[in-house]
Write a protein that binds this DNA or RNA. Structure first.
Lengths: 125, 125
DNA sequence: GCTGTATATGAATATATGTTCATATATTTA
DNA sequence: TAAATATATGAACATATATTCATATACAGC
């Protein structure tokens, strides 16, 4: 890595210090689009809460109703319902109604994949 | 899925409603250990902030120094430094010193994998 | 219709979190 | 040693967030 003197460059109207201008502009070219990044962060944030993560990993073994999830996690029905809504809004889980009950499950194989990948990594790094 | 009447079961000293007791106890058996889950949620939470995620995806193309990252993200040096510390504490990134500068890069192929997987999913679901 | 059960929702509150600002540390060069 | 540069840190503040509580909705059975 060649070390260069800091110089000032104008980007989007404001002057900023740049040391490795090439590296920075490469990063800019390859950057995810802002809406993509925004959605991505919403998804990670949703998975980044212990309660919601417990729900998600719990659902890896198959669907559960709200009441089951409450029993499994030790949360109140209401807290579970709030959590489920958030996960559902992001399409991380989906619901199937049977009578008065709603059975929740992971929406997508990808979600399970992401969880499994994280678990695998934790377990043998 | 067989639907049964709700019954009351004692778990860890407190009485809870359980509808599908088998499903709940299966989930309990297969549940990640609590410290695992805690660490997992810390990692997802760290990735769940737009600024930190911007940094991480920026580093997918190679190492950058703090100053580069500040230019790339539009954040102040200080904010970048705080973000980097958090990512570093979780071993998501690592630092290499060269003179007065520190070059940060993704710590692990797994981190890149997780990011790439999330991006791929967003892009063609 | 009414009652009971499963789930959802809104407001409130307590806690967590990201950025800024001021200051500190580390390293190079004079 | 002193000055300049790159990065780090702590406190403070403003915002976001998870849970609780009270209430609402949806469905089943009578």
């Amino acid at each position: 890595m060649t070390t260069r003197k800091t110089n000032l460059v104008v980007h989007e109207g404001c002057q900023v210090k740049v040391i490795h201008e090439d590296r920075v502009s490469q990063a800019r070219r390859e950057a995810p689009q802002e809406p993509e990044l925004e959605r991505m962060s919403l998804i990670f944030k949703a998975m980044g809460d212990p309660s919601r993560l417990r729900i998600l990993t719990g659902l890896m073994g198959g669907e559960m109703c709200v009441c089951d999830i409450a029993a499994y996690t030790g949360m109140s029905d209401s807290a579970v319902s709030h959590a489920l809504r958030r996960l559902r809004d992001l399409s991380l889980i989906k619901a199937r109604r049977d009578g008065q009950m709603l059975y929740y499950s992971l929406d997508d194989l990808h979600v399970a994949g992401q969880l499994q990948m994280a678990l695998d990594h934790l377990r043998h790094t």
